[in-house]
Amino acid sequence: MQGNENADLVIVEYGDYQCPYCGAAYPVLKELMKEFGDQVTFVFRNFPLSEMHPYARPAAIAAEAASLQGKFWEMHDAIYENQKSLNEIFLFQLAEKIGLNISQFKEDIQKTELEEKVDSDFESGIVSGVNGTPSFFINGNKFNGGAEDLLGLVRENAV
């Protein structure tokens, strides 16, 4: 979660770190948070499409491991900003680059709780009707548009 946790506008993204459409949505969402971060709660949920994207799940687990060191968003951003280079070894390079304790990171990525968190995010997406990435929800309702549409909607309704 980032932004204003008490905001009236809650945006949830179900995303896959290896999905090119999520990669394209990433800079738009960064812009949205730059403009409206004080008016929005933004939540990212893992929805790795592992059959198509073999590094999506390891990347999701790496981001959750970074979260244990208080650096979820730094890892999230680093993965999307280097999406084309994604592989399991590269995740360790990113962990080092963002200043994680590497021995702790190596331990954490083995934790079943992190796999369970990723699986739980995925299952909540399935229950909510997510059938592709990125999928967005606004205040609990599925938004049938892309990141650009979402940014436009927020700009139109900004106070």
Rank of each mutant, 00 (worst) to 15 (best):
Q2D: 03
G3R: 06
N4L: 11
N6G: 05
V10Y: 00
V10A: 05
E13N: 02
G15F: 11
G15N: 09
Q18H: 03
P20I: 06
Y21M: 04
Y21G: 00
C22I: 10
C22V: 15
C22L: 09
G23T: 12
G23H: 15
A24P: 12
A24T: 09
A25G: 15
P27S: 00
L29C: 10
K30A: 04
E31V: 08
M33L: 12
E35I: 12
F36S: 01
D38F: 07
Q39N: 06
T41S: 11
F42D: 07
V43G: 00
F44L: 03
N46L: 03
F47T: 00
F47N: 04
P48V: 02
P48S: 02
S50Y: 02
H53M: 13
Y55N: 15
R57N: 01
R57W: 00
A60L: 08
A60N: 07
A63W: 06
E64Y: 10
E64W: 07
S67H: 08
S67C: 03
Q69M: 14
Q69G: 10
G70E: 04
G70F: 14
K71F: 10
F72M: 05
W73E: 03
M75K: 13
H76W: 03
K84F: 09
K84R: 11
S85Y: 07
L86M: 14
L86K: 08
N87T: 13
N87R: 15
N87P: 14
E88W: 10
E88K: 12
E88A: 05
I89W: 00
I89R: 11
I89S: 10
F90H: 06
L91Q: 09
Q93Y: 09
Q93W: 02
Q93P: 08
A95N: 07
A95W: 11
E96G: 14
E96A: 11
E96I: 10
K97F: 09
L100F: 13
L100N: 02
N101M: 11
I102Y: 07
I102M: 13
S103R: 12
S103E: 15
S103K: 14
Q104Y: 09
Q104F: 14
Q104C: 06
F105C: 05
F105H: 09
F105P: 03
K106Y: 00
E107I: 14
D108K: 04
D108V: 08
I109D: 06
Q110E: 08
T112H: 04
E115D: 11
E116V: 07
K117Q: 11
K117G: 01
V118Q: 02
D119V: 10
D119R: 15
E123P: 00
E123Q: 15
G125K: 15
G125P: 08
V127K: 12
S128T: 07
V130H: 03
N131V: 09
N131W: 01
N131C: 04
G132W: 04
P134Q: 00
P134I: 02
S135N: 13
F136G: 02
F137G: 00
N139S: 03
N141D: 13
K142A: 10
F143Q: 01
F143I: 05
N144Q: 05
N144M: 12
N144R: 08
G145D: 12
G145P: 07
D149C: 01
L151H: 12
V154W: 05
V154I: 13
N157Q: 14
A158Q: 11
A158W: 04
V159F: 02
